[in-house]
Simulated scan of single mutants.
Amino acid sequence: MVMRFRDRRDAGKQLATQLAGYRNRPDVVVLGLPRGGVPVAFEVASELHAPLDVMIVRKLGLPGQEELAMGALAQGGIRILNDDVISAVGIPNEVIDAVAAREQQEIERREHLYRGDRPALDVRGRTVVLVDDGIATGATIRAAIAALKRQHPAHLIIAVPVAAATTCDELAAQGDKVICLLKPDMLYAIGLWYENFSQTHDEEVRQLLACARSMPTSGVQKQVR
């Protein structure tokens, strides 16, 4: 087992080896969390011969300490709050609402930027592989799970290169399966587990999604009408 990944693409290739049982299945769709989860998800989708789309989620960062998640927001109006952080810091509701309103605008911007006029893939009755580049607090992935469950997929597999062992255990109750390559007792930061953890930009996400659309898949890409 590797101790660190070279970059997100390397992590995606290694993650795909643990998902080989889903290769060439017409019911499988891969969703990546932008931005950093998309390069990982692209490699997974390529190896599985599955369609790729994005699941747009935004962290609700604590004002002044934006890297600390007080919750997360997902497309469809899903809001997940980290009650421990909110209680410890004493964050008033109006601050949470203001941050959520700003992040909702960013979700809408990204939906238009990444998809244009194309609708999201229809996941109803399908096997969804939800991919990110790692899980820290778990707020964003929980928001994504909640939003996805409203769309009634048949099965949900959470697949990440690295996450804290306790987080994996907690998420196992929310998805059909959790696949994680590295489960350190002390995560510290996701970037520590990558040799190259440079920022993923919007244009890279757009290019990867466009490339994925041009690749053959095992099933028909059903779309939301």
Score class of each variant (00 low, 15 high):
residue 50 A to G: 11
residue 50 A to I: 06
residue 52 L to Y: 12
residue 54 V to I: 11
residue 59 K to W: 04
residue 60 L to I: 00
residue 62 L to G: 01
residue 63 P to S: 13
residue 63 P to W: 04
residue 64 G to Y: 12
residue 64 G to L: 06
residue 66 E to M: 15
residue 67 E to N: 03
residue 67 E to S: 14
residue 68 L to E: 08
residue 68 L to Y: 01
residue 69 A to K: 04
residue 69 A to F: 09
residue 70 M to Q: 06
residue 75 Q to I: 01
residue 75 Q to M: 00
residue 76 G to W: 03
residue 77 G to V: 06
residue 77 G to Y: 03
residue 79 R to N: 10
residue 80 I to D: 01
residue 81 L to V: 08
residue 81 L to Q: 06
residue 84 D to W: 14
residue 87 S to C: 04
residue 87 S to G: 12
residue 88 A to L: 09
residue 88 A to K: 12
residue 91 I to A: 10
residue 91 I to K: 07
residue 91 I to L: 10
residue 93 N to S: 14
residue 94 E to D: 09
residue 94 E to M: 02
residue 94 E to G: 08
residue 95 V to N: 08
residue 96 I to G: 03
residue 99 V to P: 02
residue 99 V to R: 01
residue 101 A to R: 13
residue 103 E to H: 08
residue 104 Q to D: 05
residue 104 Q to T: 11
residue 104 Q to I: 02
residue 104 Q to P: 07
residue 105 Q to R: 08
residue 107 I to L: 07
residue 109 R to V: 01
residue 113 L to N: 05
residue 113 L to F: 12
residue 114 Y to A: 10
residue 114 Y to M: 15
residue 117 D to H: 13
residue 119 P to Q: 14
residue 119 P to F: 06
residue 120 A to E: 06
residue 120 A to R: 09
residue 122 D to Y: 01
residue 123 V to G: 03
residue 125 G to V: 10
residue 127 T to V: 13
residue 127 T to S: 12
residue 128 V to C: 03
residue 133 D to R: 12
residue 133 D to M: 11
residue 134 G to Q: 02
residue 134 G to A: 06
residue 136 A to M: 04
residue 137 T to P: 04
residue 139 A to M: 02
residue 139 A to D: 03
residue 140 T to W: 03
residue 140 T to Q: 10
residue 141 I to R: 02
residue 142 R to L: 05
residue 142 R to C: 06
residue 144 A to R: 05
residue 145 I to D: 03
residue 147 A to Q: 03
residue 147 A to T: 01
residue 149 K to W: 15
residue 151 Q to T: 00
residue 153 P to H: 05
residue 154 A to F: 11
residue 155 H to N: 14
residue 156 L to M: 08
residue 159 A to T: 05
residue 160 V to T: 12
residue 162 V to K: 11
residue 162 V to L: 15
residue 164 A to F: 05
residue 164 A to S: 14
residue 165 A to H: 14
residue 172 A to M: 01
residue 173 A to V: 08
residue 174 Q to A: 07
residue 176 D to V: 04
residue 176 D to E: 11
residue 178 V to C: 03
residue 179 I to D: 00
residue 182 L to I: 10
residue 182 L to K: 09
residue 183 K to L: 11
residue 184 P to F: 01
residue 184 P to C: 05
residue 185 D to Q: 08
residue 185 D to M: 13
residue 187 L to R: 00
